[in-house]
Simulated scan of single mutants.
Amino acid sequence: MNKLLTLTIASEIFLLLPFLLIFFTNRKTKKNILLLLFLIIGGAPLLYLAIDDLNSNYIDANIGLGLAFMFTWIYSVIALIIAIIIVVRKKRKNNSSKD
Rank of each mutant, 00 (worst) to 15 (best):
Y58T: 10
N57F: 05
N94T: 10
P18C: 01
V77G: 07
G66H: 15
N94D: 08
K91C: 04
K90C: 01
W73S: 09
M70G: 05
G43P: 08
F71A: 02
D60A: 08
G42Y: 02
A83I: 06
I59D: 09
R27T: 14
N55C: 07
I9E: 11
L15S: 06
I81Y: 11
T72G: 02
S56C: 03
D52Y: 04
L54C: 08
F14D: 00
L4T: 04
L67W: 15
F71W: 10
A68N: 03
I81H: 02
D52I: 00
L49Y: 13
K31H: 14
N95T: 07
I63W: 14
S11K: 01
L47K: 03
K90M: 00
I9Q: 11
G64A: 07
F38S: 08
L16A: 15
N57C: 01
G42R: 04
A68Q: 02
L49N: 07
A10Q: 11
S76E: 01
T72M: 01
F19W: 03
I74A: 05
D53I: 02
D53V: 06
K30W: 12
T25N: 09
F71Q: 03
T25A: 00
M1G: 15
A44T: 15
V87I: 10
D53K: 10
S56D: 12
K3P: 10
I74Q: 01
N94K: 06
D99Q: 13
A10I: 15
L35S: 05
S56Y: 10
I85F: 11
F38N: 07
G64E: 04
S56T: 15
I84P: 11
I59Y: 07
D53M: 01
S97I: 13
K3H: 13
I51G: 08
I51Y: 13
I63T: 13
V88I: 04
Y75G: 05
G42I: 01
I84V: 11
K30F: 12
N26L: 03
P45F: 02
Y48K: 04
V77M: 05
K3Q: 14
A79P: 09
S11G: 01
A50N: 01
K91Q: 08
L35E: 00
K98A: 10
R92Q: 11
I33N: 09
Y75P: 07
L17D: 00
K31A: 08
I82V: 13
S96T: 13
G42P: 05
N26K: 15
G66T: 08
M1A: 15
L36I: 08
N94C: 01
N2T: 15
L54H: 04
G66P: 02
I13Q: 06
I13Y: 09
L49G: 01
S56H: 15
T25W: 04
K28V: 09
P18D: 00
N57L: 04
G43W: 04
N55W: 09
D60S: 13
L37Q: 11
